[in-house]
Design a protein around this nucleic acid. Structure first.
Lengths: 228, 228
DNA sequence: CCTAACAATTCATACGTTTGTATTATGCGT
DNA sequence: ACGCATAATACAAACGTATGAATTGTTAGG
């Protein structure tokens, strides 16, 4: 019944085991889902003993929650800097719709880079998508993520572009739509690869995808601006 | 070892059992995935006996494949008519880019209706998305679906709009992008509801979503047209 | 029209595996 | 030598499937 006894002296070895288990969980839970991932597979992948899971996390569920938290942390690592950057520029004052559009395009480019190019994303994107489709108790952890920060930034910036209020229905839905422009190439990756005749989304392929995403973004933004 | 003995006289009772098991599989596999769905849960939901699964489908895998096929059939039922309709009009000759744009908008509206409004969609959308993220052997069954037909229609129509070849990279990616405009509201439904403060995507909410989807579609199409 | 015989299906149950976790013992640093 | 972390093993529960009996539906002989 002894779960993470919180020793004063931070034990490096146990921290390493926890981290390895979380890494393994990110990979296996993300790819195969909760039920399809066995504790034995997790322990093997982490190079840890089977009993380390109940010991460190109280059980399989606890490890899953820890992985969810690690996903958030990873998102913060990968998205925090450019979110902060845009936030700062926004706080300094958005002079024109054109400036707001430029910031949104930057957000989209950086987000696409993270979601479609970073190899680490392979794991957490699937993890998050699975929680979207069938939320567990871990969904609340994931909801307050950098992605929500990004949606909020979108709302404010889109407000500058369109002249509508940031919490206007149209604005919020458009923000979700923009994220969808990126998500679709990850979620429907299997179909995309097959349709395009690609083996992977390599450098050249990503360049094409990125172009289309940014082009569509620009068009949607320009349309939103022209309207009001 | 006797699997579906193919009696001359079609047995109503066994057909009904198969159908109930497939319906239960559509629901449970779709929502919870393959591993999280137990044969006992399937049998209970179908009001059938446990042994009916190996008997009629050869096992859990066989039932899963049968459900995948049923998903295709359902898609054909729900999308076949408007796909045929657009196909006919296209074959009759697309006179102007404007006409092609109108057809694409019709496709998008009908597709959104099916994906976001039909209650039956709740099951198969999750089923398909799961196969997208982690394709099993059933993916091949699903790939040759009405959705591929729709992508092909998009390619041809987008070709008319833009002047580019139907198999041009930009064209195909734009087709995927358009589908993403619809998918995102289903896949990221949990976040959408939470973000919008909605309980469900009811009539009024759907009207807003539909407006945004069609607006974005129009903007992307117009941009594609203006470019060449 | 009835009914016995047969095949097809459903059912209750049992079996071997695999699952997650508990238990106990061993290693290791302070 | 003491406490924490790891390791090997054991165990109850749940899993998918196999098995044989019971039930249902169909068909042929009277």
């Amino acid at each position: 019944m002894n779960v993470r006894p919180l020793t004063k002296t931070s034990n490096e070895r146990s921290d390493a085991t926890r981290r390895r288990l979380i890494d393994a969980g990110m990979e296996l839970f993300g790819v195969n889902g909760f039920d399809a991932t066995t504790t034995r597979a997790l322990a093997d992948a982490a190079g840890a003993n089977l009993a380390a899971i109940p010991y460190h996390f109280g059980g399989k569920d606890g490890l899953y929650r820890a992985v969810a938290q690690a996903v958030i942390d990873g998102l913060n690592d990968q998205m925090g800097s450019f979110l902060d950057s845009v936030q700062r520029e926004m706080d300094a004052g958005v002079g024109s719709p054109h400036q707001a559009m430029a910031l949104i395009e930057r957000l989209m480019a950086d987000f696409a880079e993270v979601v479609l190019q970073r190899p680490e994303a392979d794991n957490w994107v699937c993890f998050v998508m699975r929680e979207q489709m069938q939320p567990t108790e871990a969904f609340s952890i994931l909801y307050d993520s950098p992605i929500k920060r990004m949606r909020d930034l979108f709302s404010k910036l889109l407000s500058h572009v369109s002249g509508l209020e940031p919490d206007h229905v149209r604005i919020k839905l458009t923000g979700i739509e923009l994220l969808g422009l990126v998500y679709v190439f990850r979620v429907a990756r299997a179909s995309t690869l097959r349709e395009m005749g690609w083996q992977t989304i390599n450098e050249a392929a990503y360049a094409e995808v990125r172009t289309v995403i940014l082009e569509s973004t620009r068009l949607i933004l320009r349309g939103l601006q022209a309207k009001n």
